[in-house]
Design a protein around this nucleic acid. Sequence first.
RNA 1: GUGUGGCAUUG
Length: 245
Amino acid sequence: RITYTIVISGLCQAKKADDAHRLFKKMKNSGCSPDFVAYNTLLNGFCKLGRVDEAFALLKSFEKDDFKLGLRGFTSLIDGLFRAKRYDEANAWFRKTFEANVEPDVILYTVMIRGLSEAGKFHDAKKLMDEMNQSGLVPDTYCYNAVIKGFCDAGLLNQARSLQLEILNRDSFPNTCTYTILICGMCRNGLVVEAQQIFNDMEKVGCFPSVVTFNALIDGLCKAGELEKANLLFYKMEIGKNPSL
RNA sequence: GUGUGGCAUUG
């Protein structure tokens, strides 16, 4: 049974939810009854593609087999609803989480914060962050990144930066994504110089730019008309790929 | 003792 679940999980990660579903059926037909891990895995496979209606249909059938939605399942569904831009339903399901006596954790809060920020409901996102802190949960880097991105998208760059510094006080570390988010935010708000500075700073802290980071800054430089600098960066990127040089 | 949930760029 575990072997089935592992393969189902792999198919889901490869975004092959339909194949995963087929294998799931095969698993049942072969006399293996899925457990809650298998159920969660398949639900998440559909949710992360934004195919929430299919996920709900599955959930209904699972519940006939006595499956009870737990924290991870709620998280998947809510994440899926946000991906499908069904914001009201996402909020409703967040409330349902409490009604089911399931305590949200940092991951669920992060999903909510990211979703609300993307919907432009930045104030609601901030409220949730406070709520999370009050309930004693300690935000991790993923969570900070979601909030920082929210600040950036709202054009509140100073607050984004001060939050970046706050991470360190909390015994977490900004990672490559954190810096990419900031670089992108600076560029989009016309602060390309700042973006370059952040780019230079990150290496000093032992955080190395990824392809995504390079792309973000190169794109920003191009859009700001700094083509020479963009070219130089492109060149650096190529060198980085060939340590033998 | 193994399997399930959340981050970044352009397109």
